[in-house]
Amino acid sequence: MRQTAFILAGLVSAASIGLVGCDVQKTQEGNVTVPKYEVSKTQEGDVTLPKYDVDAPKVDVTTEKKEVEVPKVGVYTEKETLTIPKVEVTPAKDRDDDKVAEKK
């Protein structure tokens, strides 16, 4: 039960950090011209949506064993080895994998 709570906490923190680490660059301006109508069409419509290149961060979630003090029933604590999540986030602009290298 305790391990599941740690894993869920790690995944939630990884997801929130992942949203902050995105590198977004606008690659094209957008243009929207809506058609005007009276009884007959007087102008053709033109829609050009903006384009974005989004490089998501690389997120590695692993576990490691750490010895921490865990309170026990009574007035004492004892050390116990638990598996805790370890999250490493590399922002998109700092990544050096092949995908990012091809776009530059």
Rank of each mutant, 00 (worst) to 15 (best):
M1T: 11
M1L: 13
R2A: 15
Q3T: 10
Q3M: 10
A5P: 04
A5Q: 13
A5T: 12
G10P: 02
G10D: 04
L11F: 12
L11W: 09
L11M: 13
S13E: 11
A15Q: 13
I17T: 15
L19D: 15
V20D: 14
G21P: 02
G21M: 03
D23I: 02
V24C: 09
T27Y: 09
T27W: 10
G30D: 07
G30C: 06
V32H: 11
T33C: 12
T33R: 15
T33H: 14
P35R: 13
P35F: 08
P35C: 08
K36P: 02
K36I: 11
V39H: 14
V39G: 14
S40V: 15
S40A: 15
S40T: 15
T42I: 12
T42F: 07
Q43T: 11
Q43I: 10
G45A: 11
D46F: 12
V47S: 06
P50W: 04
K51N: 15
D53E: 10
D53K: 13
D55T: 09
A56L: 08
A56V: 05
P57L: 00
P57W: 00
K58Y: 07
D60G: 01
D60T: 06
V61T: 03
T63I: 05
T63Y: 04
T63Q: 07
E64C: 08
K65I: 06
K66M: 05
E67Q: 09
E67K: 10
E69V: 04
E69Q: 06
K72G: 02
V75P: 02
Y76D: 05
T77N: 07
T77L: 03
K79L: 08
K79M: 08
E80W: 01
T81S: 03
T81M: 03
L82A: 01
L82N: 00
L82M: 03
I84K: 01
P85F: 00
K86E: 13
T90M: 00
A92H: 00
K93I: 02
K93H: 05
D94M: 03
D94P: 00
D94Y: 01
D98L: 07
D98K: 08
D98A: 06
K99R: 06
V100P: 00
E102L: 07
E102R: 05
E102M: 07
E102N: 08
K103Q: 06
